[in-house]
Nucleic acid binder design. Sequence first.
DNA 1: TAGTGGTCTAGACCACTGC
DNA 2: CAGTGGTCTAGACCACTAA
Lengths: 251, 251
Amino acid sequence: MPIQRPRSRYAQVADDLREAIKRGTYGPGAALPSQPELARKYGLTQTSINRAIGLLETEGLIRTERGIGSFVLDIPTVKRVRRIPPRGRGSGSSFAEGLQKAGLKPTTKLVQAEAIVPPPDVARRLELGEGELALIRKREMFADGRPVQLAASYVPMSAAGDVGIAFPDTGPSGLYERLAERGHRVVRFMEEIESRRPTEEEADFLKIGKSQHVLEVVRFAFDRVGRPLDVVINVFPTQLWKLTYEWAAEE
Amino acid sequence: MPIQRPRSRYAQVADDLREAIKRGTYGPGAALPSQPELARKYGLTQTSINRAIGLLETEGLIRTERGIGSFVLDIPTVKRVRRIPPRGRGSGSSFAEGLQKAGLKPTTKLVQAEAIVPPPDVARRLELGEGELALIRKREMFADGRPVQLAASYVPMSAAGDVGIAFPDTGPSGLYERLAERGHRVVRFMEEIESRRPTEEEADFLKIGKSQHVLEVVRFAFDRVGRPLDVVINVFPTQLWKLTYEWAAEE
DNA sequence: TAGTGGTCTAGACCACTGC
DNA sequence: CAGTGGTCTAGACCACTAA
């Protein structure tokens, strides 16, 4: 590969590596050659190679870990559809459904379930006063072992009554039934969607670069008088998911 | 501003400039000090300053022009709600509504309206055969003169019958009425949402960097037998918009 | 310890803009 | 022309990981 002038050299190196990745020379998960090695190969200094690597990282093609190396990320081929609102049964676990249909094995890990003072943005959304408690349930979700989604749900303790309401852990529809038994019926849902850069922890868990984006979907459930009964915050990488909403035209 | 060790120096410079921009020290449109000047101020080399500037550019805070300088871009403050499907009238122009509520003056420019052979992805979505025509209507949208959205709608000519159906240009609800008069009633809507990197043209029109993301919302309108009557592709920068969907719980 | 990626300097040259 | 941002080197040191 001859290095030519008009285009910057590090950009040409990035081009070359990008091509190699697309050709499959470095498949998903494979490590790129080390920076000193690439420097020798292209006849540049490590500084320039480092910059090329940075470019690919920004583009979301690779992820580099300090002291280890740079690794090719999965190339987003087919996006998994997440259907919202769900057709038919309640607002059940569209997560598992979607993945199973795609031939992937969904697994979920409950990492937190307790009564806490929620972070201020959640408290505001739940219309909680200073220091009021909420039941948090935090989950990590995987498809064939690969981390694909983070979910945190918050229910005001005033509505939940007891931490035990979270168990057995049957997903939102089970929770809503138990809330209904306590006199809190959900009559309306709302979802807010935005795309943003991931936090450090999110990027770490989802194994994505800092420059890739995540979709944050916040679902609110309201009772008859418009009070929020729970807030669910879902976060997933934009490359993996596509959202779908569907509704009937008015007559 | 003391430069300290644990965090990289160029990142600290970026932090400092970011703060200054947020504080208003450098307002929208203002030029940052030149790189040599910043290098003197922070006691670093131009190379490091250049890197800090690159960071801010990636984040979409500034825009730099070679041989001229770096300039602060508009900072998006409040995100706008876009859509609440089931409430109020049809799927009318939520674009204008949302912006007016935000105190911004919306303007729209129709840049194309004719019968064409649509691009393959659109043809597939409209279930069109090879070479079948569709009516395209392409719009550019502005808020207080700033480009904020791109929209392209496609209607199969077999349903539209005539290019004239697009006029007067009264937005989707007007179009749907005229389609209904021709025997094509819309009974169902669907929207697909994804976040992706902008194409070159999109980045250019929306005045965003290549590393920022856009939301693509594709709305389908279906008739009674599930045939697509039109497809509308909306593209806008993720920083400017927040999407909202709302629906009633099932009984 | 050796190997990885990350940062930084000093100095240089280039391309571009606007006067 | 002087001033701007962009690239590159040679060499150095650091932080981190794994054996």
